[in-house]
């Protein structure tokens, strides 16, 4: 049994310690937001926050996240109220097929937590590990900037790590 907190909920999962966090989330905890894309941390579709840090869950063994706080895209909204990054994604109509967007959004959330007003270079650095085969990058960039503006317009908020 490995204990951890997933989107604010304490869970105890009966899994092999070597099982990647991604598959424990998807197949065991039934949290489907993080997506399987590559299994080698090359595409970013599986990105989640582990104690606030953006992490490729497909290469993160469960034994390394015992007791950790996991946030996935499924846990960003508070009730019906979406996170400002999600709102910005809707405003810019970012997603096409949408499969990579869970990971894109989590990387963007992590970036904005760290750098409230990112430059283009900051966005490149934080987001280049997230592949999008639909090529939504220009709209991703616009959405991050929009969310950053929202951030400075209202009080900075913290996202549960």
């Amino acid at each position: 049994m490995i204990d951890l907190t997933i989107n604010g909920e304490e869970r105890s999962l009966d899994v092999d310690g070597e099982m990647p966090l991604l598959w424990a989330l998807r197949d065991v905890a039934k949290v489907k937001g993080p997506k399987f894309g590559c299994g080698i941390a090359a595409c970013g579709a599986c990105t989640v926050l582990v104690d606030g840090a953006p992490t490729r869950s497909c290469v993160t063994p469960m034994e390394t996240v015992e007791g950790a706080q996991i946030t996935t895209v499924d846990g960003l909204a508070v009730g019906e109220t979406l996170h400002r990054v999600q709102e910005a994604w809707i405003a810019e109509q970012v997603a096409q097929c949408g499969y990579c967007q869970s990971g894109q959004i989590m990387s963007a959330v992590a970036l904005l937590n760290e750098v409230p007003n990112p430059t283009d270079e900051d966005i490149d650095d934080a987001m280049s590990g997230n592949l999008c085969r639909c090529g939504t990058y220009p709209r991703i960039r616009a959405a991050i900037k929009r969310a950053a503006e929202q951030n400075s317009a209202v009080k900075p908020e913290t996202v549960e790590g």
């Binding site: 937001g33 979406l82 809707i90 997603a95 959004i105």
Partner: peptide
Amino acid sequence: DMRAKVTGA
């Protein structure tokens, strides 16, 4: 489908 796709549905 945008809301579903930004919430990881």
